[in-house]
């Protein structure tokens, strides 16, 4: 089975479901841990972040009451989704991730070479997504609460992350709505945030020709989901004894995760950047060296035979017979 093709098919179905689901009266709720942008009219579910930012915009005292209960309920739903599918939300469901994969396909079709960042560069910017996640909590709180008697942040900071998120500009286009591509001149904060959104959208188009899933490396949703890496039901396991460090896995990984090749002792390989696309398992030539599991039950295991089949090479048994 070519997992890559299966993944593209699943991503396509999820894309249709999340972008056009509303047309078929499908509503998966507004707490999805994926970029099903709330600015899309015909969406089949909503991104968790927009509601989260609204919910955090409350005076601290109110979190002791109903606001806290509502927040906990929302976080609970988010956590439930995250625990079940873990990072597979990014690799298999996210419509924005799917678009990036399609851009990669286009790049391959045109014949443009892919680039890889230096390891140091990657490590240096690894924390960006966590900083964005923290800001997403602090900015709404700062709008409703005064810290040390300082004035609260103006309302222009409302849903600040959505203002810079390129998914807000790109995904509504699939509903025929280009109106999100704008610069807001009502205030300096809004102007800066919406301009950043436009710049990141531009980067989405160009960086797709440089690197696979460039924006995912800085995505706060990936950071939020990585909080559930250890307890997620969907997992990626490695048997270090069987690994020969051929490096196929890290080369095939769209997120360029090096640990997957280097790690010998750690059994759970869902690292903070992993999107559980299972590309590493697909290209691993060693029997049971890598294994994807759900609730501990293997769902996809690396095999030598499978590897050869997928590469279109004759398997050992077949070769012997032919000889």
């Amino acid at each position: 089975m070519k997992v890559y093709r299966l993944r593209i098919a699943v991503q396509f179905v999820c894309f249709i479901l999340l972008v056009y689901g509303g047309l078929f009266l499908i509503d998966l709720g507004s707490r999805l841990p994926t970029f099903s942008c709330a600015y899309m009219d015909d969406r089949g579910g909503g991104c968790f972040f927009i509601g989260f930012q609204h919910m955090m915009n409350r005076p601290l005292g109110e979190f002791l009451g109903d606001a806290g209960i509502r927040l906990l309920k929302a976080l609970g739903i988010f956590a439930l989704w995250a625990v079940v599918l873990n990072k597979a939300w990014c690799g298999w469901v996210c419509p924005f991730g799917f678009l990036q994969d399609m851009m990669t396909k286009l790049r391959t079709f045109i014949g443009v070479d892919v680039s890889r960042f230096a390891w140091m560069t990657r490590t240096r910017y690894k924390s960006v997504k966590y900083i964005l996640l923290v800001l997403m909590i602090l900015i709404p709180l700062g709008m409703a609460n005064s810290v040390f008697g300082l004035p609260t942040l103006p309302r222009d900071w409302s849903v600040a992350f959505c203002q810079i998120c390129p998914a807000r500009l790109i995904l509504p286009i699939f509903n025929g709505d280009f109106s999100q591509i704008y610069v807001d001149f009502s205030g300096s904060v809004r102007m800066i945030l919406t301009s950043l959104g436009v710049i990141l959208t531009g980067l989405f188009f160009t960086t797709a020709f440089v690197k696979r899933r460039f924006l995912c490396s800085y995505c706060p949703m990936l950071a939020a989901l990585s909080l559930f890496d250890k307890i997620g039901l969907t997992s990626l396991k490695k048997n270090g004894q069987r690994c020969t460090r051929c490096g196929n896995c890290s080369r095939a990984c769209p997120m360029e995760i090096r640990e997957i090749e280097e790690e010998k002792t750690l059994s759970n390989l869902v690292t903070q950047d992993c999107t559980l696309c299972l590309r590493c398992v697909e290209v691993c030539p060693e029997d049971k060296a890598l294994q994807a599991t759900f609730c501990g039950v293997p769902i996809f295991t690396a095999t030598q035979e499978g590897f050869l089949k997928r590469q279109g090479l004759p398997g050992e048994n077949k070769t012997e017979k032919e000889v």
């Binding site: 959208t201 531009g202 160009t206």
Partner: peptide
Amino acid sequence: WESQTVGFYSLGGVVLVTA
């Protein structure tokens, strides 16, 4: 207060410059 024209031109500019 919103300019889609500026948005589109900026987007095109960013794409051209980075590319």
